[in-house]
Amino acid sequence: MPKHEAIKVPDTDHLMRYVPYKQQVRDAETNAFKGIANTAFQIRPSDKGGLSTTWVEHYGAKGPATYGAAASAFRDSLPSKKLGATAYFAVGNVGATREKCLDKGKSIRLVVVPDGTNTGHVEIHKFSDEDRELLDILAIDVFGEHVAVSNLPLS
């Protein structure tokens, strides 16, 4: 297993988690986006070693252009090189993520693990997805900012 450079992700910074359509909460009648489901924080087969996120500030000051740069880097690291047209990114604060996980007895560790073009790829280690209450907290309270892929300035 390759060693990764010890880079500390500041508590003031933010992480993005890709949320495909099936992990979104939608209005039953209109199909309008209402939020993200706690399943968005379940560890996926593609999450190699920890919960996969992208560090926003690695690409610049937090804002729409940086979200676009981070999302583009994430997209380009995928085998398909595609993001779902109805997908969203959930954005959450690093310090709040650490705090809420610690409140639930999980002393997580953020590890910067570049993944191809996504040099801001961060894995959340020492995280398990068995605690549904923690997944709800992450989905609702911590990663409460949602950015539609269709609204991003992708390069």
Rank of each mutant, 00 (worst) to 15 (best):
I108M: 03
R17W: 04
K3R: 10
S52R: 06
T86M: 12
H146W: 08
K104Q: 10
S72W: 05
C101I: 05
S72T: 15
K62M: 05
A139N: 11
R109A: 12
D129H: 15
I108T: 03
A69F: 01
V142S: 06
A71T: 05
E5S: 10
E133N: 12
Y59F: 14
F33S: 08
R75Y: 06
L110Y: 08
G50M: 03
R44K: 11
N38H: 10
H121E: 09
T30L: 01
T54F: 02
K48T: 13
N118T: 04
S150N: 14
P45V: 03
T119N: 00
E57T: 07
D129W: 13
Y88R: 09
H58L: 00
D76E: 14
G95V: 09
N118P: 05
I7Q: 06
P2Q: 07
F143P: 04
E99S: 09
G144E: 12
S72R: 01
P20I: 00
A90I: 00
D47C: 02
L102W: 04
D27M: 00
K62R: 13
L51A: 01
A148M: 12
V111F: 03
K82Q: 15
D141N: 15
C101L: 10
I137E: 14
E130H: 13
V9S: 04
L110A: 02
R75Q: 15
D103N: 11
D129L: 05
S155Q: 11
Y18D: 03
A65K: 14
G95W: 06
A6N: 13
G49Q: 05
F33G: 08
D11A: 13
K22V: 01
V94E: 09
H58V: 01
L110Q: 03
H14W: 15
C101P: 05
L15V: 09
A148K: 15
A70Q: 05
N31K: 10
N151W: 04
K48H: 14
A61C: 00
D141H: 13
A96S: 10
A61N: 02
A61F: 02
H4M: 10
D141I: 09
G105F: 08
E145V: 12
D13E: 15
S107E: 13
K82P: 06
N151S: 15
Y88C: 04
C101V: 06
A148Q: 14
A28T: 07
N118Q: 08
G105C: 10
L15E: 12
H4Y: 15
D103E: 15
K62A: 08
I7K: 08
R26P: 07
K126E: 13
Q23T: 01
S155D: 14
W55Q: 03
E99A: 12
H4V: 13
A85G: 08
L110C: 04
C101N: 02
K3T: 11
L110H: 03
A40F: 02
Y88E: 09
D129A: 07
K82L: 13
D141A: 12
S107C: 05
G50C: 01
H125E: 14
Y88P: 11
P45E: 07
K62F: 02
H14P: 13
V113M: 14
V111I: 12
K3G: 11
Q24I: 00
P153K: 01
H14F: 15
R44H: 10
Y59S: 08
V147L: 07
K82V: 11
A28E: 11
V9T: 07
